[in-house]
Simulated assay, not measured.
Amino acid sequence: MSGITVHRIGREAQPLVIIDNFAPYPDVLRAAAIAAEFGPALHHYPGIRAPLPTSYMPTQQPVIAEVLTDVFGQPGPIDLIDASYSMVTSDPAALSIHQRLPHCDAFAVERIALIHYLSEGDGTAFFRHRSTGFETVDQSRAPIYLGQLDAELRYGSEPPRAYVAGDTPLFERTLLAEARFNRALIYRSYVLHSGAITPDAKLSPDPATGRLTVTAFLSVEKI
């Protein structure tokens, strides 16, 4: 698979697939984002989102399906849960506690996350929870992890009002995937991760100058 590299995250060695030159016409996608109407994001995302061109997923699905089969061992039919242009725009001072921590997008093993960078800038970081040692949180681990994290936040100090990009008292960074224009990352949604937003990051809501990405969430049916 040309332009595709596979990395293993931390001790649990979950796959992270990095695909350079992901989309055939990235400048067209960027132009469409500049013309799109963005609105507030849901589900704790610290920024804004806009609809994608309808051709995006059909165009990219063949390479996604190849990766899911060859790397993740998940060759079943792909169900698109959500996909949109996304931009991180929230001021660090306005972040909720959970927006200042690494997170999982879902606890189910069949769920897959994709991020496609349409700008240069900050990448994506992956983490290990120090006290449990968890780098992934599936349905069986969720009660343990959430209970322990709640206790640490309740009886310890709050995380600083900043995006989490590196090591903290509660989390150790295991890998940093750098952002490059037209690079995509594919990983399982239950891996602990965060946008590695640096203190000097441009948080502009303008797609021409801000951190423009496509984020997508997929589910792969078992066969």
Rank of each mutant, 00 (worst) to 15 (best):
A201S: 15
A196H: 02
A32Q: 14
A177M: 05
P143G: 03
P26N: 09
R111I: 07
V109M: 10
P58Q: 08
A201P: 03
Y25F: 14
Y190R: 15
T174A: 08
S90W: 11
Q74Y: 10
A41T: 07
I9Q: 09
D138K: 08
G10S: 05
P15I: 12
D138H: 06
A65K: 10
H129F: 10
H193I: 02
G10A: 04
P75M: 11
L29T: 01
S55G: 04
P143K: 09
A31I: 00
G73E: 05
L42F: 11
P53G: 04
S84C: 13
G39C: 03
M1I: 09
F127R: 03
P53A: 01
A31Y: 04
E37W: 04
T215A: 14
V191N: 06
V6S: 13
Y56L: 01
R154M: 12
F127K: 02
H116D: 00
D206Y: 07
E110M: 14
A33E: 03
T168R: 08
F72T: 07
D105Q: 05
G156L: 11
V88Q: 03
Y45S: 06
A113H: 04
S119H: 05
Q74T: 14
A83M: 06
P169D: 10
E172A: 14
R11W: 06
Y45W: 12
V164H: 06
G166H: 12
G210I: 06
I97M: 11
S194G: 04
L68H: 09
I97F: 11
L42Q: 13
A41E: 09
A177V: 09
P53Q: 07
A94T: 14
A165N: 08
